[in-house]
C-alpha cells in the first residue's frame, strides 16, 4: 500500500518515472517545473506541496513538503487544488485538463503553455496512478 504524498510514495514515484517513462517519447523532452499545492489534506485540513522538475524530459526534482509555503524552488507553473481533486485525478476519475477547465485546479502561469504539457503530464499522472493505492479519507 503506497499512500499519496507519503515518503514511500515519493521514492517509488521518482523511481517509476525515471525507469518507465521515456524522456523523448513519453515526456516529449519537456523542460519545465510544476508546483502542486494540495489544500485541505485530511485529517487535519493542512496544505502540502509537491514539486516536479523536468529537464529535457528527465525528472530532475520530486520534492514534497508540508505547509502553506514552498520556498525550495521556483516553479514555472503553480497548480492549486484541494486534496479531493488531486485524488480524483490520480484515481483517473477526472483528467488534469478537465480539472483545470472546471476550475477545480487553479493555475498560476500561462494556460496556453500549461495545456501544451497535457500529453506529457498525462503520462506522469498515469505513472503515479499505478503506484498510488491509499489516500487519506
Amino acid at each position: 500500500m503506497v499512500k499519496f504524498l507519503s515518503e514511500e510514495w515519493i521514492d517509488i514515484s521518482k523511481k517509476y518515472i525515471l525507469e518507465k517513462l521515456d524522456p523523448e517519447q513519453d515526456l516529449k523532452n519537456i523542460t519545465t517545473s510544476l508546483l502542486n499545492v494540495v489544500e485541505h489534506v485530511p485529517p487535519n485540513d493542512t496544505s502540502m506541496n509537491f514539486y516536479l522538475g523536468f529537464q529535457d524530459g528527465k525528472l530532475t526534482d520530486f520534492i514534497v513538503n508540508t505547509g502553506d509555503t514552498f520556498e525550495e524552488k521556483e516553479a514555472i507553473f503553480i497548480i492549486r487544488g484541494n486534496y479531493g481533486t488531486f485524488k480524483g485525478i490520480l484515481k483517473g476519475e477526472m483528467s488534469m485538463a478537465v480539472a483545470l477547465l472546471k476550475n477545480r485546479l487553479k493555475l498560476k502561469g500561462s494556460k496556453m503553455k500549461a495545456l501544451k504539457l497535457i500529453k506529457p503530464l498525462d503520462g506522469v499522472i498515469a505513472s503515479l496512478r499505478e503506484i498510488t493505492d491509499e489516500y487519506e479519507e
Binding site: S95, A97, V98, L101, L115, I118, K119
Partner: peptide, 12 residues
C-alpha cells in the same frame, strides 16, 4: 495539434 490534444484530454 494542441486543440486536438486538448479535446482528447477533455473527452478522455
Amino acid at each position: 495539434e494542441l486543440f486536438r490534444e486538448l479535446i482528447e484530454s477533455i473527452l478522455g
